[in-house]
Write a protein that binds this DNA or RNA. Structure first.
Lengths: 252, 252
DNA sequence: GAGTGGTCTAGACCACCCA
DNA sequence: GGGTGGTCTAGACCACTCG
């Protein structure tokens, strides 16, 4: 990647720059390698730093780069496939679950969550916090909302922290799971999630909302927040495919 | 939303600004309403236009706003739920399929697609283009790659355009579908996809990759690109839930 | 042609990490 | 303390839409 002047083209500079950098990443850099700093790079391509940053942002969004304040910009490894939907439904916390319980509090959920749980607005529910690791890195955090109605024997629980979280999950297993549905959308990390995921606030995340049905109503509602830069959510049985982001551009 | 001076806080201005604007959207604006232009808004809050834009970008990413060059910034409707995974597997193009065939060409797919299809690099396959509407708006475009091996009777096809696309889909139905798997990840729209989706290049999209298995191998591979700002991908049977993005902030 | 959002510049300072 | 990325400014010009 020499001192490349960008030839003038009608497309935005940052877009062209992104393409050039992307090709350089494929051909001249390997995973983990540190790129020159932003001021140098901008000078090399003859653009303002803000313009260069626009290109880097895109590449980070696509999971090609990783930037850390005070450290530098490195070439990111390919996205990890994290299994989200197993073919057969199962309660959170069962057997081969990839989540680790962190703690559990009682608090009033936001209105939309309360609506899905069919609880009154402002009525507190059990909120189990869990986190999920993959490849030695935390890739997701989750809030699992469980209304009292689903775990009636748990009103006078005295455990705390992770133990309490496990108690709630254990209690859930006693119900027969009748079904679940799931939605995925793009969001931006709130301050607390960002901290958990080792990202800055506002970082792009994939929000997976899962409803668990038992006894004819919603027995639990999970809101899971995945790092969008490093994760590919898989829904089948083979989390080992890699299709998107390919060195070659698509033909025709 | 008056001439609000932001009180000095340790958090970034654009972040605080986003929060303030978000609350204003909930309380003082209705869907479709036009916001003041960026220069006015920036002046009102006493920040540079670039800073204001950073806040607007976030809100657009979260599906709260819609910005169009030459027109203005409007309050976006809630995201539409688009069903992606039906419980029972089925071939693309069958019965209640939400996709409309556009055309079909033969071209060599990118290397990773070729690998999944188990075709030689550079070997052309059928590429069916389809698009998907929801609420009168195009929400996704798809490239469905079908290798010759899956549709052997189609080598000397003479139809063109949508008719040809339908012919390929029809031929696929004759195989017995043995399974499929799916992955979702964040991407940015390439120039052609962006045009289809009425967005600018680089706009955030959700890329859904689906592999269809038949006769012991991958018979087709779909790469679908959904607008991330307007879509919530649903995987259960009830695409009518709305949980995320809620006026109220989450309690504790 | 007037008004909008999109791109770009050249600077400044801040928050963070590490030797 | 020196180097990194993150935030912010005050301007300029461009591309697009619409009356």
């Amino acid at each position: 990647m020499g001192t490349t002047q960008l030839e003038p083209v009608p497309e935005p500079k940052y877009w062209h720059l992104k393409t050039v950098l992307s090709e350089a990443l494929d051909s001249e850099f390997s995973v983990g390698e540190i790129l020159p700093n932003e001021r140098d790079l901008a000078a090399r391509f003859g653009v303002a730093r803000a313009t260069l940053r626009q290109a880097l942002e895109q590449l980070e969004l696509e999971g090609r780069l990783q930037r850390r304040r005070g450290v530098g910009t490195t070439v990111a490894p390919p996205r990890v496939g994290v299994a989200v939907g197993s073919p057969q439904h199962s309660w959170p916390g069962s057997a081969d679950d990839a989540w680790q319980p962190v703690d559990c509090v009682r608090s009033a959920p936001p209105a939309a969550v309360a609506a899905a749980l069919e609880t009154a607005a402002g009525e507190p529910v059990h909120v189990v916090r869990r986190s999920r690791m993959s490849g030695g890195q935390r890739v997701a955090t989750e809030l699992l909302h469980v209304p009292d109605a689903a775990v009636p024997d748990l009103t006078a629980i005295d455990a705390a922290g992770a133990a309490r979280a496990r108690a709630v999950l254990r209690e859930l297993q006693r119900l027969e799971l009748e079904g679940q549905d799931r939605a995925v959308e793009l969001g931006s990390a709130r301050a607390d999630d960002a901290k958990d995921l080792d990202r800055l606030p506002g970082a792009p995340v994939l929000v997976v909302t899962t409803r668990f049905f038992a006894e004819g109503r919603t027995a639990a509602l999970s809101v899971a927040t995945y790092r969008a830069d490093t994760c590919r959510l898989t829904f089948g049985d083979s989390p080992d495919v890699e299709i998107h982001h390919d060195p070659e551009r698509r033909a025709s």
